[in-house]
Design a protein around this nucleic acid. Structure first.
Lengths: 326, 326
DNA sequence: CCCGAGGATTGGAACGTTCCACTTGGCGGT
DNA sequence: ACCGCCAAGTGGAACGTTCCAATCCTCGGG
C-alpha cells in the first residue's frame, strides 16, 4: 500500500510548484490554461485528494456546519426535521460544505457541545432549531459572532439574527379557504392552548380566512387521545361543523378517529406537517416543504463565495407551505 | 478579541513543556500527579481547547464516523433510522467520536462521496445501512480496509464484515405467541412478496410460532392502500381470522382500516417498527430498539481504546426486539 | 533597445499538534 | 561509589496545506 499522494507529488509530476497546484484547485483563474490542464491531469492520474485537516489548519476554516439533533420526541412529528437534515446535507455538499451532528439533552449541554466543536475548529457555522423567545442559544451565538441560522422564528422582538421559517398562517389560510369552498362556512379549528408562537400563528391563518373572522375554536394538548376526546365531545353535543382545520397531524388523526366513531367519517379534516401517518390514513395536510427551508437556510448562512458569513445582517425567509389534498 | 490559546500558551502558564501538556490530555498516566493538576488548572484558566485539525493532521485520525443519509423515502418508515442516527451521535460523542453525514442518490454516488471523505481524512470509519446480497459497498470498504459496520445483515453468505441487525423473526414470534394466547389459534400473517431478506425473516418468526407451522399468509406491497384492499377482500370472503401479524406498520394500518370498515374493529393487529403512526392509532407493534442497535454498532466499530478498528474479525450482533402492546 | 506593468509562478514560513529520540533525576543493588 | 533502570519530562521535527513576499516572464510603448 502506497502513501497517499500529496500536493508535492502532484507538483513534481506536473513539473510545477506546490503553490501552482494549490492554485489550480482553489483559484483556477490565476493559472494559465495549459498549465492548469497539465496539473489537472496529474491530479487525476495520481488520484490526489487534498487533506482536509492540513487545509483546515492553515485556513482556519473547516467547511463544516454543525447541526443539533433533537432527542427523539416519540411524538408524531420529527419527519419534518428529518427531511430538513437530509436536504441540508445534500445541498451543503453541493456547496462544498459538510454537516456534522451533535446532541445535548438540554440547551446548556447543547451550548457546551457546540462550544467544543467551534473552539476546536471542527465547525465554523451552525443551524439551530426550535428557537423561542429569549433563547439563550441565539444570544450566545450572536455574542461569539458565530455564523448561524435558525429554523424557526424567535417569536419575540429579539430577532437580531437570520432565520428561516414556514409561514404557518399561510398554510392554515389555504386549508381554511379550501374547506370553506369544498364543505361549507362552518370551518372549525382544533389547536393547542394559546401561548405557543407556532400554534397562535396557525390559528391566525384560520381566523383570517373566515368571512366573519370568528368560528368555533377547539383546544387540545398535542396528543391523539386528547384530540379525539375533545372532538368526540363537540360532535356529541350536536355542534354544527362543516370541516375542521388542525394545528398538527396528531390532532387531525385524533379528530378523524372521533369523527369516524361518531358516524361522520366524511367530515373534511386538514392536518399540518403532512406526516406519513396522515398520508397513511388518507388525511389532507399542510406540507412544510423542508427542502425549501434547507435551501433558504444555506443561502442565509453562506455568502456567494461559499464560505460561512458572519451574522452581520439579520435576514429572514418565510417559506410558503403547500396544501396536500387527499 | 484574543487569539485562542495554544498548547504552548498552556505550557508556559503551567511552567512545563508542550509535550507534557499534550500528555496530560492524551496520556494522563504518564504525568506525575502534582504536575497533572497544575497543568489541568492552567488548561481550565485559559479555556484551552485542542485544535482538531492540527491533531488530525499529525495523528492521521479524524475521530469521525461518516454516515450515509438515505433520501427521504416518503413512506411511513424512517423513524427507526432517525432514532438510530440520534443514538449513534449521542453514544459516539461519549466516546469522543463525531458523526458526519453524507448523501448520494445511488450506491455509486454514495461510494464516490464516501471516498472523498475517507481519502481527505475527514472520516476514518463509516456506518452503512440497508445492505443486501452482493452489496458493492461492503466489497469496496473491505478492499480498502476501512473500518465499518453495517446496520442490516448482508442476506447472503458474503458476511465477511461486521454487522448489527434486529432479529425480525424473534419479533414476529413474540407477536404471534401473544396473539395465539390472547385471541385464538388462527393467527394470520400479512407480509411482502417473498424475496426480501427482511420480509422472509419476519414471516419465518410467525410461522415458527404457530403450533402447526401453517396458517393464512397474505401478501401486499408496502403500502397502506394495497394492504387495506388485500385484508378487505379476505375479511369479505368470510375467512376465519383471530388475529393478524404484519411485516410493517404500514401494512398494519391498512389492515386496521379494512378491519374497522368490515365491522371487526376488535381484530387484534400487530405491526412492526412501532412508528408514531401506529402509536397514534393505538396499534400494537414490534419495537426495534434502535438505541441498542447503535450501541452495538459502536462496540463493533471501536476497539476498547476508542479508536476505529480495522475490520479484521467480522463480528455480528442480533438485537432482540420488543413487543409493545396497546 | 530599454523600461515598466502586470500576469504567472515560485519557495520559505506558518498553522497547532503529536511523534520520537533524548536528557534528567532518583533509587535499588552490587 | 558505581552502574543500570525506570519514571518524568524535554525540544526538534514532521504532518500537508495555504499565505505571502519575491521573482520570472511577456509584451506593448517610448
Amino acid at each position: 500500500m502506497e502513501r497517499a499522494p500529496r500536493l508535492q507529488d502532484v507538483a513534481a509530476a506536473a513539473g510545477v510548484s506546490r503553490q501552482t497546484v494549490s492554485n489550480v484547485i482553489n483559484s483556477p483563474g490565476l493559472v494559465r490554461e495549459d498549465t492548469r490542464e497539465r496539473v489537472s491531469r496529474a491530479i487525476a492520474d495520481l488520484g490526489y485528494r487534498p487533506h482536509a485537516a492540513a487545509r483546515s489548519l492553515r485556513t482556519r476554516r473547516s467547511s463544516t456546519i454543525a447541526m443539533h439533533l433533537d432527542p427523539y420526541a416519540g411524538g408524531i412529528s420529527g419527519v419534518v426535521l428529518d427531511r430538513f437534515v437530509h436536504a441540508l446535507t445534500d445541498l451543503a455538499g453541493e456547496r462544498g460544505m459538510r454537516v456534522l451532528l451533535y446532541t445535548g439533552r438540554d440547551h446548556d449541554e447543547e451550548i457546551a457541545r457546540l462550544a467544543e466543536l467551534l473552539d476546536g475548529g471542527e465547525a465554523d457555522a451552525t443551524v439551530i432549531t426550535g428557537t423561542f423567545h429569549g433563547d439563550p442559544r441565539t444570544r450566545w451565538l450572536a455574542a461569539r459572532r458565530t455564523p448561524f441560522v435558525a429554523f424557526g422564528r424567535p417569536w419575540g422582538e429579539d430577532d437580531h439574527h437570520s432565520w428561516v421559517d414556514v409561514d404557518g398562517a399561510a398554510g392554515t389560510r389555504k386549508a381554511t379557504a379550501w374547506a370553506l369552498d369544498a364543505a361549507g362556512p362552518r370551518v372549525a379549528f382544533l389547536g393547542w392552548p394559546a401561548g405557543s408562537g407556532t400554534g397562535d400563528d396557525r390559528e391566525l391563518g384560520w381566523r383570517s380566512a373566515l368571512p366573519s373572522q370568528a368560528g368555533l375554536r377547539l383546544v387540545s394538548e398535542e396528543s391523539v387521545g386528547d384530540a379525539r376526546a375533545v372532538v368526540a365531545d363537540v360532535l356529541a353535543s350536536g355542534a354544527a361543523i362543516d370541516a375542521l382545520v388542525c394545528a398538527s397531524d396528531s390532532l387531525a388523526i385524533g379528530a378523524h378517529l372521533a369523527a369516524v366513531a361518531a358516524g361522520r367519517a366524511d367530515l373534511p379534516i386538514v392536518g399540518f406537517d403532512n406526516t406519513p401517518a396522515a398520508e397513511a390514513i388518507g388525511l389532507s395536510s399542510v406540507e412544510q416543504l423542508p427542502e425549501q427551508v434547507a435551501s433558504a437556510a444555506l443561502d442565509l448562512l453562506l455568502d456567494p463565495s461559499g464560505s460561512a458569513t458572519a451574522p452581520d445582517g439579520a435576514r429572514h425567509v418565510l417559506v410558503e407551505p403547500q396544501l396536500v389534498l387527499r
